[in-house]
Every structure is written in structure tokens, then in C-alpha cells.
Amino acid sequence: MLKNAKSLFPVKGMISIILLVFLSTASFGTYASATPEEEGLRIAREIDRRDSGFVDNTASMKMILRNRHGQESKRTIRTRTLEVTGDGDKSLIIFDTPRDIKGTAFLSYTHVKGQDDQWIYLPALKRVKRIASNNKSGPFMGSEFAYEDISSQEVEKYTYKYLKDDTLNGAACFVVERIPADKNSGYTKQIVWIDKAKYIPEKLEYYDRKGSLLKTLTFHDYKQYLDKFWRSDRMEMINHQTGKSTTLLYSEYKFKTGLTEKDFKQNVLKSVR
């Protein structure tokens, strides 16, 4: 997922290679002298680097929505993601239940720069509709996840600041603050706990436009795929202001399934079932 690796390190000739070696040695040696912003960005890029090369993946998901009284409502969903070199990922989300929205599908092209492109397919009308891109702060299908929470997390979508080290459930973590670059975001900031050994998020706090704590997302039951990619089987999002919560249960993760650009064209929305 390191989309702009080439532009970050335009290695041309021996001088730049030497420079690169020097820079990496220097940063290793003078770890403490990096500013909190540089350290935050370094961590974000390292997360991205370690998760790059998955090519594509598919998964099944159960979404459990709970109101403040604990009443539950379930949705079953399939997801398909394609890694795009040089830009944000493409993803397709297909709803199997509840039955009245069966076949409804979301297609999104995330971009490193600018607004994402999003379409929804309405099976009853056989109609593909483009969705306004300022809706990113809106709830995704009535859940506590906003569109921006479920979309591909590109490095460029935030500015970073390393805050401190912490221990979470016995694991050593970096604590990094990130501020969304897009003014349409529903958040003023997010605070992320990142496992130091694996470079995977363990906990995420969302702060609303007034700066108050809005939601907390925790990641559980990580599994490693292809000896490289960590995926959480269970995510818990709690809204502190409404008492509502949403659980995402992932299963059947598959990588390198052979998906291509063609599987993420509008045309395909009409054939997914």
C-alpha cells in the first residue's frame, strides 16, 4: 500500500543511494532527535509498508448494531478490496442481509489526493448512483462506523504526531495523534495505539468537531495471513455520546484471489448478488 514509494525515494545514481544509506543510518542513530511529527509520519509509513503487497483480498463480515438498550440488529456483508499502485485502494461492499437491501453494493475508489469516488447500486431500480463525497462523516448503513472509518486508510489522509509510548493489554504501543486532512471529516483528531512489534492498530479514539471524545474502536483477535498481513477478526466500536455500539466480525479472509480492475467497474455492480 506504499503508493508513492517511488516519489519518496527517487533513487537515481550512486549519489542518491549513498544519500539514502546516510539518511537511514542517521535516522537510526538519532532516533530521539526526530520531531514528534516526523516520528508519527514514520510510524504511519511503516504500517503502510508492512501491509503493502497484499494485491487483493476478499472477506465475509457480520455487522452487529446495538442500541443503548442492547437491542441487536445484524447485517451480513461481503467485501472485496484491490490494492492500487500509485493511488488509494478500490473496494466493493455487498449486502446479503437484511433481505430488503440484499444486493445493494457500495463501490469506492479511494484517492491519495482529493475526494474519493463512491457509487451505490440499488438493485430494485438496477441503478448505479454516485454518492456525494461530503458524506464521509455520515453513518455507514445505520452503524456507528462512518464512511471515513471503513474506507482505505491512506497515509496522506492525515497529519501525524507521535505522543508517547504506552502499554495496552500487555503489549508495548506507540500512541500517535492524527488529524484528518479533509475538511469534510467529522473528526478534529484521532488517537491511535499501535503495537510496536507488529505495527498494527490496537485502539483508536475519535474526537468530534467540538473536540470531545465521540467513539472508541478496539481491534481484537488478530490473525496473520501469508506470513505478513495482520487482520483483526473482531472490531468493537462504541459511541460514548449515544451509548450505541457496532461489532464487526470478519471471517473467510482470502488474499491474492485474482481480482482485477475489471472486478471494480460500475458494470460489475449489476452482476453481484
Binding site: A132, N134, N135, S137, G138, P139, N184, G186
Partner: peptide, 14 residues
């Protein structure tokens, strides 16, 4: 045109 106001009336409504 269609103009979308997200979270209108300080609610979750669009």
C-alpha cells in the same frame, strides 16, 4: 442539482 447537507439539525440525518 442535488445538494446534500450531512448531519443536518445537529443530528445523524442527511
Amino acid at each position: 442539482f442535488e445538494y446534500t447537507l450531512v448531519g443536518v439539525f445537529d443530528s445523524q440525518y442527511d
